[in-house]
Structures are given as structure tokens and as C-alpha cells.
Design a protein around this nucleic acid. Sequence first.
DNA 1: GCCAACGTTGGC
DNA 2: GCCAACGTTGGC
Length: 151
Amino acid sequence: MKSEPGVYSIDTLQREGQTLWEGVRNYQARNFMMKDMKVGDMVLFYHSNAEPSGVAGLAQVSSPAVADPSQFKRRSKSYDAKSSTESPRWFCVSVRFVKKFERFVSLAQLRQTPGLAAMRLLQKGQRLSIMPVTGQEFERICSLASTAPRP
DNA sequence: GCCAACGTTGGC
DNA sequence: GCCAACGTTGGC
């Protein structure tokens, strides 16, 4: 799951413990939350549009998808006039803080890592804010987060 | 700040 | 249903 650290960082999540992942306005990303993500699933927390961008830590899905309340709030940037409480258009899960990585895993490091080349995140033009990761990719990234950085 | 890639919107 | 215009994302 991607977030711009200036907006919501891993530190914010650590402070708050848990958050509703509001504001996603892309159908593919929404569908991942609605259909694929289960309570207890592990989440790589990725800092996008950052200096540097990369995986900052781990979270965990802590609730099933519910109607995203921000779509009903007129003053919210995520307000959607075409949605209604009777048939909400947008859904989101909650995630809880698990850990901040000892070592931040930068995008450059991900790109350099053999075995991660097929990661969806690394494919050209990939802009989805939520996307699936394989078990192998997940393990690989966690091990990068706990081993010495490259020189 | 630039720009490629992609999604969405709306006229027809 | 097509597609041009526009908006957004996010790396660089």
C-alpha cells in the first residue's frame, strides 16, 4: 500500500496504531481491498513521492472493507457526488501498525535486487496505490530490511 | 518542474 | 461504443 509520507507516513501509523485507508479512488485498488485483502494479511507500507521512495515498514489488515466515509463528506477532497449511502461506490479496509523497518528499502534497492524484477510495483507505468505482492517478494523485501545495506 | 503512463469523462 | 481531452500519479 502506497502513501505519500508528507500526507500519511509509517510514523503516523505507528502513532495512531490503526487507520482506515480512506481516499482510494481507483477501481482496481478498491477491488483489491474489497475482494482480496483479508483480516490478518500483511501489508508492505510504501512511501511514494518521497525522498527517497521505498518500503518503510509493515502493517496488517485489521478490518474487512467498509464503505469509505470520506466519499460522503462534501468538504473532503475525496468526496464523490455520484456516490450514495444506499449504494456506496468506494470501500476501504483498516490497517494496523506492525513495525517500522530497521533499514528502509528504497525503490533503487528494489530495482537492484534479483528476484524482484517481476514485482508489479516495478513495472513500467505502474501507478496503482494498492497492489498484490507474492510471498517470495514479501520475504525478500523483509530480508532486505534486516540485512546490511549495499555500499 | 517535467513528463510518461494511465484512468476517467463526456461529446458525438 | 469510440476517442479526444483532461486529470492524476509518481519517478526522475
